[in-house]
Amino acid sequence: MADKDNAVFNTIQQAPNLRSNLADMLTAQIESGDLKPGQRLPTEQAIMTATGVSRTIVREALAALRAKGLITTRQGLGAFVSNDPTPRSFSIIPNDLQSIDEVLRVLELRMGVEYEAAGLAALRRTQEDIDRMQDRLDDLDKALEEGGYGAQEDYAFHRSILVATQNYYYGRLFDTFGNIMVPRQWARLDKMTSAERKRHAARMRREHHAIFAAIRDRDEPAARRAIRSHLSKSAARFEELRDATA
Rank of each mutant, 00 (worst) to 15 (best):
D34M: 10
T73H: 11
L77V: 07
A118H: 06
L137Y: 11
A236R: 08
A15Y: 00
R124T: 10
R74V: 13
S82R: 09
T176Q: 08
A235C: 05
R74A: 12
I30N: 03
Q98P: 02
E153I: 05
I215K: 05
A2G: 00
V106K: 03
R224W: 02
A122W: 05
R206V: 00
S194L: 07
R159A: 14
R242Y: 01
R159L: 15
A2F: 13
N21F: 00
L109M: 10
E60D: 15
Q75H: 14
W186P: 07
V53C: 13
V182H: 09
K198I: 02
T43G: 04
Y168L: 07
G171R: 02
R184S: 10
R66T: 15
L109V: 04
A7M: 08
V81K: 12
T165Q: 04
I180T: 13
R105L: 10
E60Q: 15
R225K: 13
M133G: 14
R224T: 08
E60H: 11
S232L: 12
R59E: 15
S82K: 09
L144Q: 08
I215Y: 02
P16I: 06
L144D: 04
H209E: 01
Y149R: 01
S32T: 12
A2C: 00
N83T: 11
P221S: 08
F157N: 07
A23E: 06
M25G: 09
F157I: 01
E240T: 10
T73G: 13
F212Y: 10
S234K: 12
R216K: 13
I12R: 04
L18V: 03
R172I: 03
V103Q: 08
N6C: 00
D131W: 09
E146C: 01
W186G: 13
T49N: 10
G38H: 09
A164L: 02
N21G: 14
G150H: 13
D24N: 14
R19Q: 08
G112D: 10
A222Q: 12
L70D: 06
A195R: 02
D141S: 10
T56D: 13
T51F: 02
S54G: 14
T126D: 11
L70G: 03
E207V: 02
R88A: 12
R237L: 10
D243H: 01
F177L: 14
Q13E: 09
Q127C: 02
F238A: 04
V58D: 12
D96F: 07
V103I: 12
A214R: 05
A2L: 14
V103P: 06
L41M: 09
S32V: 05
V81N: 09
M204K: 08
S89Q: 15
L241T: 10
I215A: 07
R66N: 13
S194D: 14
N83F: 01
R88Y: 06
L241Q: 13
G112H: 02
Q185G: 09
A164N: 05
I92V: 15
A50R: 11
I100F: 02
A201Q: 05
G147N: 09
Q152P: 00
R19L: 04
M192H: 03
A67E: 15
P37C: 02
V182T: 10
Q166P: 01
M111W: 00
G119K: 07
Q39I: 03
R132E: 15
N167D: 11
D139F: 15
D101I: 08
L18M: 08
S160I: 01
A236T: 10
R124C: 11
A201N: 13
G52M: 10
M181E: 07
T72L: 05
R132Q: 15
A50I: 11
